[in-house]
Design a protein around this nucleic acid. Structure first.
Lengths: 215, 215
DNA sequence: GCGGTATGTATACACCGTCCACATACGTTA
DNA sequence: TAACGTATGTGGACGGTGTATACATACCGC
């Protein structure tokens, strides 16, 4: 377990930092990106900000509090990745065709983020603190919707275009989410970990197809 | 974060312990059961075994190594829970009906374990070390099959009884597993965390139905 | 009965999160 | 403009962790 911990900003001329909270948050995000939630270590974040360990406590109540802030940022970035995928896949489609493309985009965007930003993705789901998950602007994308809400919207459209009977709409989010989230987990640190990316994409597409067919 | 760490066996009359490896493993299992993978702390395990911290290194190369051993035990117990569910649900059924019951039992057994032994379940999937997952007797139930193999067998039966076309058999494990595993995750430390158990069981049944319909 | 090896002990190190007391600079108000 | 209160960063300490290295003890095969 070799650790290579170095300061980005070893010495500061001013006594005050300027924007330490943001600096710590960004250090935390960088750590999470590289190593997941466990890699977010307070002392290292302060080191990178060029500040003494305890300075962090002026801006975050605890390590957990910093982690929570990083988590919000990760969820927000996830939402943006999903939005980008939606915009791309939906182009030029209408009605049921658009609804299908939309739901697929939600799934593939989710997986794209999970597989490319593994550390942040794992951080985003590293704690049971989901209270306030719905409707927190800090966790949303540019549309103002968080990942969960993007999925909900896609499913609403499924009902509107007659692809899903109203009777099966309730809790449908969780069916779809379960499949895609579980798949991501199995790839990230499960039995699919060593499978080549091309195969992963193929199986991922089948997972999304399963959701469409089985919802 | 109050910690109540006490020795089970504070003083030993003999210099040798007798079966320290087992004692450490069982302490590790107890810790994991109560608090998940992060709760497995080497020093506490040795404390419970009534032994000095470094004694652990005679039996486990590192904390990670102990964690790995606990993980195997957890997977084994998961397999046994699934086997019990299979035996229960399959009773008196044959052919396609038995195959369906079998697959459902695999899913519900998995969920039963995930929701009742949360700490062990989270430990079972706490690391990307899935090399050797398939076919390790230490991770199997009484049938000699591990959780993955139990699922595979259930899907084979789906093909044999004509419930699933051979063309869609490859990698079907991962589709089914994704859905159920993801659902478990969303319940354990996701947005379904606060939903009452009765509702969870209902949605869980729909997840399994989705798999059957969409496979 | 002896010697080697397996097992447990003692001591120490670096790292972590966090508490407390202190120092410095900034903003407000007189 | 000077004084002061408050926000922010520092210094030092404590108990916790995993783990390395050197030493002590007991068991086992000859």
């Amino acid at each position: 377990m070799t650790k290579r911990l170095r300061s980005k900003t070893p010495a500061r001329t001013t006594y005050r930092h300027g924007d330490l909270r943001r600096a710590l948050l960004e250090a935390g995000i960088a750590l999470a990106r590289a190593g997941g939630p466990d890699a977010i270590v307070l002392r290292e974040a302060t080191r990178r900000a060029g500040v003494v360990p305890n300075a962090a406590y002026r801006h975050f109540a605890s390590r957990q509090d910093l982690l929570e802030a990083v988590r919000s940022a990760a969820l927000s970035e996830l939402a943006r990745t999903m939005e980008a995928e939606i915009a791309k896949m939906r182009r030029g489609k209408t009605g049921a065709e658009a609804a299908r493309a939309n739901l697929r985009a939600v799934g593939t965007g989710y997986l794209r983020f999970a597989l490319s930003e593994t550390g942040l993705f794992r951080t985003a789901f590293a704690t049971p603190e989901f209270r306030g998950f719905i409707g927190d602007p800090a966790r949303s994308g540019e549309s103002g919707l968080n990942p969960f809400q993007l999925l909900s919207k896609a499913l609403d459209e499924f009902v509107e275009t007659g692809l899903l009977p109203v009777s099966r709409r309730p809790a449908a989010e969780f069916l779809a989410w379960s499949a895609v989230h579980g798949f991501a987990m199995l790839v990230i640190d499960g039995p699919l970990h060593t499978v080549p990316r091309a195969d992963i994409d193929g199986i991922g597409a089948r997972v999304i197809a399963m959701v469409e067919a089985g919802l």
